[in-house]
Design a protein around this nucleic acid. Structure first.
Length: 200
DNA sequence: TGTTGGATCAACT
DNA sequence: GTTGATCCAACAC
């Protein structure tokens, strides 16, 4: 799949978060790690919207950790969790409205051998089927928080790929706001996260 | 200054 | 189905 400089514009991210989440499926995520180019196609995402969403980090108000979510859409929000993992989010909507889309799963497209190097088990097959795993594979950490997604370090592109089916469900791994059907995924991909499959 | 729990994953039983 | 790994932001004191 050839894809040259077709980055999603700022306007893409400034739309309502549920629309952005839905439209992100099938888009290509690229990260430049040194001289390496790492790319994956999005297959699973979740929306976290505003102070009224109890599962959203912004529900407690603006803090040092979540402040990028309060800013303009089209930036990365990366946070550390469970002492071991990072999670990548895409900030959405206008400045002052805190919302983001969590990237939960991608299909590796480019740089797979480099992603594999980051795991101790060299035979590991599924490297990007889960939010913590894909950050590890892409070498995304706290240093990449707040990056401009219309820039050159970390960005999303439309490569003309069309997802044939999109399904919707409850979000995974949260205790509050469980009733909202704000998770979107491609049911035909094997890179949908394991917990995501189990919890149906 | 101290405590607590989390948008996870892998390795167990 | 359960548990351990392992950090830091948030909040209570």
């Amino acid at each position: 799949m050839i894809c040259v400089n077709n980055k999603l514009s700022r306007d893409f991210y400034l739309r309502p978060t549920l629309k952005v989440a839905h439209d992100l499926l099938g888009k290509f995520l690229t990260y430049k790690s040194g001289s390496k180019l790492l790319t994956g196609r999005l297959v699973e995402v979740e929306a976290y919207i505003g102070k009224g969403d109890p599962a959203c980090h912004a529900a407690v108000g603006k803090t040092k950790r979540n402040e990028v979510m309060f800013g303009l859409g089209g930036y990365s929000y990366i946070y550390f969790i469970y002492g071991m993992y990072y999670c990548l989010n895409v900030v959405t909507e206008d400045e002052g409205f805190p919302a983001a889309v969590l990237i939960r799963g991608v299909e590796p497209v480019k740089g797979v051998e480099y992603m594999r190097q980051r795991y101790s088990n060299p035979d590991k097959n599924k490297l990007t089927d889960g939010p913590g795993k894909l950050c590890k594979a892409f070498n995304l950490t706290g240093k990449d928080n707040g990056l401009d997604l219309t820039g050159d370090k970390l960005y999303l592109e439309d490569c003309g790929y069309k997802v044939s089916r999109i399904e919707r469900s409850q979000r995974i791994g949260i205790k509050k706001g469980v009733e909202k059907l704000w998770r979107f995924y491609d049911p035909d991909s094997i890179y949908v996260s394991k917990r995501g499959i189990k919890r149906k």
